[in-house]
Amino acid sequence: MTSLQPRRSVLYMPGANERALEKAKTLPADALILDLEDAVAPDAKEAARSRVCAAAASGSYGKREVTIRVNGLETEWHDADLRAAAAAGPSAVVVPKVNSASEVHNIERALELGGAPDQTKIWAMLETPVAMLHAAEIAAASERLTVLVMGTNDLAKELHAEFVPGRGPLLGGLSLCLLAARATGKVILDGVYNNVKDLEGFEAECRQGREYGFDGKTLIHPSQLEPCNRVFAPSPEEIDRSRRIIAAFDEARVAGRGVVTVDGRMIENLHVEEARRVLALAEAVGD
């Protein structure tokens, strides 16, 4: 069975907060984004950079995937962030507001010049109308780019859109990026949910994201981890159905039957492939 890297829950952690970086070692997140951008005041950028890079290089976060979000390409801190991240060798460098393939190429060159190991990938944040319209080019720009991260707060701001249940104003852009991810074989993560006290609304948005096809969701608070992990993991019913689909298909093939049904539904190769993906994810998350 093909193994998968689960990214159901990807939690932002403020890079200037040493207690938060320590706490992250105990949280049930699939991946962490140690943040040098929004969560860090300008006068704390350099200290946070040293702290975050030391944390990422420490190897003390267990099986959690550890990434570093650098400051944006147009900021005074971006180049130094990339050099330091390349030397630290995290699982990935998360880059805000990526708008073109050429920007991906520049990020890749900077990581290579900084001596980043091959394991350090690029996660590109798509946050603007320009990025939505060029998502396929961005996603295809580099093999080192493995994950697209939706920046829904900035996207809503640039669209002059309101945050409403169901996210209608954002769905066009989200769909374009999902198409780009699937066309290029990349992972794609849904954006954050801002109201940390509204766990019912948060869980509904997790379900919407999974139904759309996102691989997981970015989070801003540890209280969001449990519902996110649960929603983006295969349910016991899905696991059982997937096993029965594979068994029925294999049995029919051995018997030379051309028609396979499970629960009254016709089963084809595409259903078997999806069933295998479900079981691989279930195995990866320990279900």
Rank of each mutant, 00 (worst) to 15 (best):
R253Y: 05
I122Q: 01
N269C: 09
M132V: 11
I33M: 05
S242T: 04
V93D: 02
V192Y: 13
P28N: 03
L171K: 07
A44S: 11
I246A: 06
L189H: 08
L32V: 00
D263Q: 12
S9Q: 07
K121P: 08
L171I: 09
G166A: 13
V104E: 13
E226C: 07
R277P: 01
L126N: 00
K25D: 00
P169A: 05
P234S: 10
A135D: 00
G201R: 12
T218M: 14
V260I: 14
A255G: 04
A85D: 09
A233N: 04
N99C: 15
I122Y: 03
K121W: 11
R51Q: 14
S100C: 11
A54N: 06
E268G: 09
G185A: 07
L225K: 06
S91P: 01
E112F: 13
A275H: 08
A24E: 06
H160W: 15
R265S: 14
N195R: 14
D198Y: 04
S60H: 14
A181H: 05
S235W: 15
K197E: 13
G264L: 09
V192R: 12
T261P: 15
A181D: 03
F232A: 07
V262D: 10
L270H: 09
S142I: 02
V254Q: 15
P117E: 04
P117M: 04
M150H: 12
R241H: 14
S91W: 10
N195A: 12
C206R: 08
L113K: 14
A54I: 00
V98D: 00
S235V: 13
A204Y: 12
M13W: 06
E143D: 12
H271F: 11
A16I: 11
S242N: 04
L189P: 07
R64C: 04
M132I: 05
T2P: 14
